[in-house]
Write a protein that binds this DNA or RNA. Structure first.
Length: 221
DNA sequence: AAAACGGGCAACCGCCCCAAA
DNA sequence: GTTTGGGGCGGTTGCCCGTTT
């Protein structure tokens, strides 16, 4: 597991899990000197680790304000809402959850929420064939600011109020952005019709989700 | 009891950005 | 204007451990 690699300068770099001794060295060094240039810090502290490794260990695990333990329901909803807004911008999302790290949120999303969404998708495939594909086809800019002309996969969202707000905002932003760039009336009309299409589709999605909300929430996380 | 499997999570990797030289 | 080094970030890997067969 733990391995030591050597560079041409014969500097041993440790990899793998951190030991308690290493943790203590890092904590004590930062307590005395504060966070500085991480590469320099690693050398000065006598740690045979890269600066990046030290930084990661400190930020994700050793920092005193790191919150450990289960993600609460409030945090869970916030993560879903912010992910709907920003996509996989984990560090940005983490800034809104005090004490939580981007790594933790990322892991949580991948292990819990993505799993749940797969369950939800299979539920829809079983109960309403034909609707699932529409559920998943919403504009990518609602989550990541992508090309409004492209449709892509996005998982269904239970928090319809928050997500519909962000989606509506995205539609408005997108429409105004298109207005800025369109040079002809024809193009503008086409873009408005496109946005209108998205809005109609979204209204359908909301209605459909509300109709099946009881079934949705009955699914275990 | 033991092997297989799967989930959770810490840690690493590679890319990108930015500031200083 | 170019180079270089540090930091930040998202994606991925691999180990540990509990559960299932």
């Amino acid at each position: 597991m733990e391995k030591i690699s050597s560079s041409p300068q014969d500097v041993e770099i440790r990899k793998g899990p951190w030991t308690m001794e290493e943790d203590l060295i890092l904590i004590n060094y930062i307590a005395d000197h504060g966070e500085g240039v991480w590469n320099t810090l690693a050398k000065s502290a006598g740690l045979k680790r890269t600066g990046k490794s030290c930084r990661l260990r400190w930020l994700n695990y050793l920092r005193p304000d790191v919150r450990r333990g289960n993600i609460t329901t409030e945090e869970q909803l916030l993560i879903m809402e912010l992910h709907a807004k920003w996509g996989n911008r984990w560090s940005k999302i983490a800034k809104h959850l005090p004490g939580r790290t981007d790594n933790e949120i990322k892991n949580y999303w991948r292990t819990k929420i993505q799993k749940h969404m797969k369950q939800t998708n299979s539920f829809y495939e079983q109960t309403s064939s034909g609707h699932t594909s529409q559920m998943n086809m919403i504009p990518p800019q609602a989550c990541n600011g992508g090309n409004p002309m492209e449709l892509s996969y996005y998982p269904p969202c239970e928090n319809t109020t928050n997500f519909s707000t962000s989606f509506a905002t995205a539609i408005n932003e997108n429409t105004s952005r298109l207005n800025d760039t369109s040079t002809t009336m024809v193009n503008q009309c086409s873009m408005h019709l496109l946005a209108l299409g998205y809005t109609s589709m979204w209204l359908f999605v909301v209605a459909f989700t509300q109709q099946h909300f009881a079934a949705l929430v009955s699914l275990r996380w």
